[in-house]
Structures are given as C-alpha cells and as structure tokens.
Amino acid sequence: MKINDVILRTVTKAVIFIILTLGVYLFFAGHHSPGGGFIGGLVLASAIVLLYLANDIETVHKGLPFNFKKVAAIGVLLATGTAMVSIFFNRPFLTQVATYIELPLLGKTSFSSVTLFEAGVALTVVGTVVTIILSISEEE
C-alpha cells in the first residue's frame, strides 16, 4: 500500500534542524538557566524519534548506525567516570571544578567539568528514550 507523505518528509527536513539546535542550546544553557543534560537529551531524543516517524527503522539505521543501548551505556560510563575522578584527588564523590582560561580568539572563557558529566547524562537519556520507544513500537 503506497501512501503519499511528501508533506511530512519535507516539513521534517526543516524542523529537524530547529529541534537539534534547541537541544544543543538547552544542553549548554543548563549551567545558569533552565535546561541541562536531561532536558537537552530528551529534546535530542525527540528529534531522533521524529526521524523514525517520518522514515522507517532501516533507513534511519543506515544514516545513524548507532546501537542506542551502547550509547546509553557509554553515557553512564562517562557520567560516573567524571564523578569518580574526584575520589583520586581526596575530594568527595561528584565534586566538580570550574575555571577560567584565556583563549586567543574568544577571550576569557569558563570551563567546568560539569559539562562532561552533563554530556554523560544527555547520552544516557538519548539512548534510553530511543530504546524504549523503538521497543514499544515493535510490530510483532
């Protein structure tokens, strides 16, 4: 059965970039304002779910050849890894550091290890949400 869904595909091509940009913005905004790894990860996962809705599983797997269970595992490893580094410096678990570095083009830029932890949280959320949605929408 052939169903014409050219409108959905065309709209998806434009909207997917807006959603991905919002996800990355929310991920980096989490330091001082609403946002953070969890919300950014959820928005990125909704972008991937929109790709699955507009196309089908095999086409998306051809373009995004990730095993999303492994993505979630790498995220947990990154989050707990950055949390455990502080133990080796005689600090409590989950201690984070922040510093300012003078960069040649950008000037005084703030760097903090929370960003790595949040990246782990975001990867975990993306992997888990996509895995859940793919497994509850199985046809069989």
Binding site: Y52, I57, E58
Partner: peptide
Amino acid sequence: KYIERGVVIERKSD
C-alpha cells in the same frame, strides 16, 4: 500515523 496505518514506526517502508 497510527490512525492511518495502524503502526507508529515501520520496520521497512514499501
């Protein structure tokens, strides 16, 4: 998509 085709995410499009 569920109303029109009965499935939300297709395994392979035809």
